[in-house]
Design a binder for these strands. Sequence first.
DNA 1: GGTGAAAAAGCATTGCA
DNA 2: TGCAATGCTTTTTCACC
Lengths: 160, 160
Amino acid sequence: MQLDRIDRKILQELQKDGSLSNLDLAERIGLSPSPCARRVKALKDAGVIGRTVTLLDPKALGLSLTALIHISMDRHTPDRFEHFEAEVANYPEVQECYLITGQAADFVLKVVVKDMDTYQQFLLGKLTRLEGVTGVQSSFVMRRYKDSTELPVPEEYPIA
Amino acid sequence: MQLDRIDRKILQELQKDGSLSNLDLAERIGLSPSPCARRVKALKDAGVIGRTVTLLDPKALGLSLTALIHISMDRHTPDRFEHFEAEVANYPEVQECYLITGQAADFVLKVVVKDMDTYQQFLLGKLTRLEGVTGVQSSFVMRRYKDSTELPVPEEYPIA
DNA sequence: GGTGAAAAAGCATTGCA
DNA sequence: TGCAATGCTTTTTCACC
């Protein structure tokens, strides 16, 4: 699938505001509603456009502590990783979990909790109890300069 | 503002699917449409509910490389930080940028690009040219176990 | 604070130029 | 691709429980 300038504009607008009606979207990109709807449908069918979600304000919810956690495992076997993955996916405090290269760590987690007490409970009660976890290194977010869900939409022709 | 069980259910549903109509939402939480709409409005007014966005699939867009970058600065002055912040906010490749505690680094960035070539261009052409940047350490995401926008909605009474 | 119904507005969709 | 008309869904408001 090839994206032209209009497709990219559609993607940019929807990334900024997923509640746009097709009418409003069409107006913003300078197209009439029907071709606009057709393009959006094609982008959905191609899997480029995914879910629409509502973002909440962590502060308003009293979630004032965000931690980035680097985790090392004792052994790098598929077993270890799969088990870790499955457990971590169930923790609502964990927003992101990546297996990474480089560094000393194997995993990076982004965790959001109410306060340091809750964080300690999460760390001692859940994370460090997981099999194979040998090292845990916490960093805390002091300031959130940018926290976006927007992806850059490439200039050229990407292939879906 | 106090959240009861129904409010929390609303927030959970909307975090999963931001395109829900008030009708569908009301049905899911077991309430009739009008009080449901009232609650949603109140949550928006209180700032708990923020924007609604459409998520794209990085892979479908040909964005196959995600990097976590740790950055250290030469001096920890407000000037340095503000300048860095302002520049980084303009880079579309940067999804997240945090000022963090601990570690050797001062900032953590999450960057999404097409491939290693593009990453190198970003690093050399943009990031390392910023004033005050002394250390850059890259990790690459090998596997994305969890990548969510959902926040945990606390059990007790948070205050907005 | 919740329910149900009714009215009004806005929307997606379709067919055609 | 653009336009127009149809028919629907949705939001909103109201009186009542």
